[in-house]
């Protein structure tokens, strides 16, 4: 567990430097990818160790969805329309916004495995009783 977190903290440092360098030279796409990778790694640091592998798969999937949306946003012209709305705006509302809402809705389902296992809660409550 400690080894993973040591590595994750180093990765955060590297991603932070990359993001700042990308922003400095105006490479906003690289900046965005580094920021989302930073968020993904930070999230995994907090996930319960036993579920980290499964969580990693979901983080990578959500990250790929975000990058895919970003690519689509760069490809559509400012005057194009999609679903009757300006295409870039529609991708932001139906893509980025929705991709952020979904994990909130499923949070209660992953709570026992990713956030606080029943065993961890029992341990804390036992400590409190003592």
């Amino acid at each position: 567990m400690t080894e993973f977190r040591d590595g994750a903290v180093k990765a955060l440092g590297a991603l932070g430097v990359c993001a700042l360098a990308a922003a400095t030279v105006g490479a906003w796409f690289v900046f965005a990818v580094c920021c989302w990778a930073f968020l993904g790694v930070a999230f995994l640091i907090g996930v319960a160790p036993a579920s980290r592998r499964a969580a990693t798969r979901w983080v990578v999937l959500i990250g790929l969805v975000h990058v895919g949306l970003l690519v689509a946003m760069t490809l559509v012209g400012p005057e194009e329309r999609f679903l009757g709305l300006p295409a870039g705006w529609a991708l932001l509302v139906f893509g980025i916004w929705t991709a952020g809402i979904v994990p909130n809705l499923f949070f209660s389902r992953i709570f026992d495995r990713w956030v606080l296992t029943p065993e961890a809660i029992d341990r804390v409550l036992a400590t409190k009783r003592r």
Binding site: F43, I45, G46, I96, W97, G100, P103, F107, V115
Partner: peptide, 18 residues
């Protein structure tokens, strides 16, 4: 400004981390 309103994924991240 809507990118700020789209930051709803911050909730689960903040809860799990802090």
């Amino acid at each position: 400004s809507m990118w700020l309103a789209c930051a709803v994924i911050g909730g689960p991240v903040g809860l799990i981390l802090v």
